[in-house]
């Protein structure tokens, strides 16, 4: 309960800071030198945050749709032969450093928001796919037997049994993807994507720690909020399935 109140409080402070950052300036003043500005003012922090969140949300949505579709395909009879290969590819793919993926997307897509979105999408596919796969294949044999005994068609089984049971794990995969993307999107600013990384990089270039700090704090608080939001959804989904 105390945790929830703290989270809500952090969310409110974040919102207040984004809407009206000026009153917070004294907090960041000690971290500046030579009278440098304490609050990043080149672009509004709110618009950067919204753009950052929009990029992450688009990437997570795309990863979820494609990752889940692929996981469903390789667990059907026609796709079975791809299952071991798909496992290997996801395991290997996840060792690829996100920064390297981002850098490699540039020659194909140029600079800007596009390559960042694609890199986040590709990198986000893996946790979603892996978790959806675990959810779709990890059911107790009794459930599978019961579904067959009830005479459900494969399609009915997918929609009424497999997917609802896989939902908590799928949400966990989306949570991983969202939190990783949120952090990685900041690096997107090195290739001119409009994200909060812009604030951090401006701070690094002008040795203004206040900028680094406020960019990092906003992303950090967003990550914690999103992490807990997904966790709440997961436990609700588990309760609804009677898994808890």
């Amino acid at each position: 309960m105390i945790g929830r109140i703290l989270l809500a409080l952090a969310g409110l402070v974040l919102l207040a800071f984004l809407i009206a950052p000026a009153p917070f300036a004294p907090l960041f003043q000690p971290f500046t030198r030579n009278g440098a500005p304490a609050i990043y003012a080149q672009t509004s922090l709110l618009s950067l945050t919204l753009s950052h969140l929009a990029i992450v949300a688009a990437a997570v949505a795309a990863s979820t749709v494609i990752g889940l579709t692929l996981a469903i395909l390789v667990t059907r009879r026609a796709g079975r032969e791809f299952l071991p290969l798909a496992r290997t590819v996801t395991a290997v793919g996840q060792t690829f450093p996100p920064v390297a993926v981002l850098a490699l997307a540039v020659p194909v897509l140029g600079f800007g928001t596009g390559p960042t979105l694609v890199a986040l999408f590709l990198y986000g596919l893996l946790p979603v796919f892996e978790n959806a796969l675990a959810g779709l294949t990890g059911q107790p044999p009794a459930v599978t037997e019961a579904a067959r005994g009830m005479g459900l068609t494969p399609r009915q089984r997918l929609w009424q049994i497999d997917l609802p049971l896989a939902l908590p794990l799928l949400l966990a995969g989306m949570r991983l993807t969202a939190v990783i993307s949120l952090g990685t999107a900041t690096i997107g600013s090195t290739i001119a994507a409009r994200t909060l990384g812009e604030v951090i990089i401006a701070g690094l270039l002008s040795s203004n720690t206040a900028f680094v700090l406020q960019g990092g704090l906003v992303v950090g608080i967003l990550a914690v909020l999103i992490h807990h939001g997904f966790q709440a959804l997961e436990s609700r989904a588990r309760r609804r399935m009677g898994l808890e």
């Binding site: 900041t186 690096i187 040795s207 720690t209 700090l213």
Partner: peptide, 17 residues
């Protein structure tokens, strides 16, 4: 856990000062 949520770019930057 909270340390883990700080974006890498910011953590690297904060370490300098």
């Amino acid at each position: 856990n909270i340390l883990q949520t700080i974006p890498s770019l910011a953590l690297f930057g904060i370490m300098i000062p």
